[in-house]
């Protein structure tokens, strides 16, 4: 984990202890557990050929989505990525219907037309996962225009990976948001690889948050495996962007699984993976809650059992749901 000096932090996110209530800590722990359990189930389904297509697992990065989204209001917007299960669950989607979508069922969020890479939950401000790297960044920016024109106080959290930071859409969008002072929090999840391409080989800087300087906006780096640190950083950013325009937050994290199901992990070492597993965001939060007295062992076990149960129920619902209807094949192309 690269060390983050105070000097590297931007004006938006200063070292200030924001109190995180016990209840919220437990909620965040539960959300991380749900994401992990959801994806373990998805990985199992894929290995058994029960789900077709591909899937991109978020395991190891849960603290970033959960910490960030926990700091948002219910009606704030997010845009997500191809690795979007974490953001989607963090934003509060109904797990049974999300699982149904992955199994291609009519009761899925997108009637089985979207799948893993295209889940959206517009009612909760989730503008969608995205199959195109960097594809959601302009969309988040446009949501910022709607907020600005209406004059309300919502914000947009725009998630993307270290791969997307080298897409033109990143540059065009962050620049546009900076000149128009749009309330967008750009959150780069640096999981160290764009598929097999190491961020060290893909960019000539060690600290991706330095990119913010080019747009005259605050840039900061946060330990993406520390849910409380992410929560605090995004919480401060949320207040900042409403008044001052966008910020860039780079969350340093790591994906435990391969890029997708085709990944043989040839580009990274077992040692590196093991080292990051030591920093598992869920285990870290558990330890911290126990040590800090935010929860007892019994309470934690109860949350863990609850998370597993919620996924089992989601699976049951999804499996019992009917397949997508062939009658729906040509619907939803155009709105009336």
């Amino acid at each position: 984990m690269p060390r983050i000096s105070a000097a590297e932090r931007g004006a938006a996110v200063e070292e200030r202890a924001i109190e995180v209530p016990r209840e919220l800590q437990r909620e965040m722990y539960l959300k991380m557990l749900q994401i992990r359990a959801f994806e373990e189930k998805v990985a199992y389904f894929f290995s058994r050929g029960m789900v077709h297509g591909t899937t991109h697992l978020y395991m190891g990065e849960e603290a970033t989505a959960v910490g960030a989204v926990a700091s948002l209001g219910d009606d704030d917007f997010i845009t997500s990525t191809h690795r979007g299960h974490g953001h989607t669950i963090a934003k509060g989607i109904e797990l049974p219907r999300m699982m149904a979508e992955l199994l291609g069922k009519q009761s899925g969020y997108c009637k089985g037309k979207g799948g893993s890479m295209h889940i959206a939950d517009l009612a909760r401000g989730n503008l969608g996962a995205n199959g195109v790297v960097g594809g959601g960044i302009p969309i988040a920016t446009g949501a910022g225009i709607t907020i600005k024109l209406r004059g309300d106080d919502r914000v947009v959290a725009c998630f993307f990976g270290d791969g997307a930071i080298n897409e033109g859409t990143f540059h065009e969008s962050v620049n546009l948001a900076s000149v128009w002072k749009l309330p967008v929090i750009y959150i780069c999840e640096n999981n160290q690889y764009g598929m097999s391409m190491s961020v060290r080989r893909a960019t000539n800087i060690d600290d991706l948050s330095l990119r913010a300087k080019a747009y005259g906006i605050p840039g900061t780096r946060v330990d993406g495996n520390d849910v409380l640190a992410v929560y605090r950083a995004v919480r401060e950013a949320r207040d900042y962007v409403r008044k001052n325009g966008p910020v860039l937050i780079v969350a340093e994290t790591y994906r435990f699984s391969g890029h997708s199901k085709s990944d043989a992990n040839r580009y990274r070492t077992k040692e590196e993976i093991a080292e990051w597993r030591e920093r598992d965001p869920i285990a870290r939060m558990r330890k911290r809650m126990l040590e800090g007295g935010s929860a007892t062992e019994e309470e934690l076990v109860e949350l863990e059992n609850g998370a597993r149960r919620s996924i089992e129920e989601a699976v049951k619902y999804a499996e019992e749901s009917p397949e997508s209807s062939i009658d729906e094949l040509e619907t939803d192309v155009y709105a009336d």
Binding site: T141, G142, T146, I147, G168, E172
Partner: peptide, 28 residues
């Protein structure tokens, strides 16, 4: 200038931001 917005030369951002504004209730 709020409703007639001069943009930088950024076609992907113009079209994509229009999509994002549209899906959140504006009519760009």
């Amino acid at each position: 200038p709020e409703r007639v917005r001069d943009t930088p030369i950024s076609e992907a951002a113009i079209i994509g931001a229009a999509a994002g504004a549209a899906v959140t209730g504006s009519r760009p």
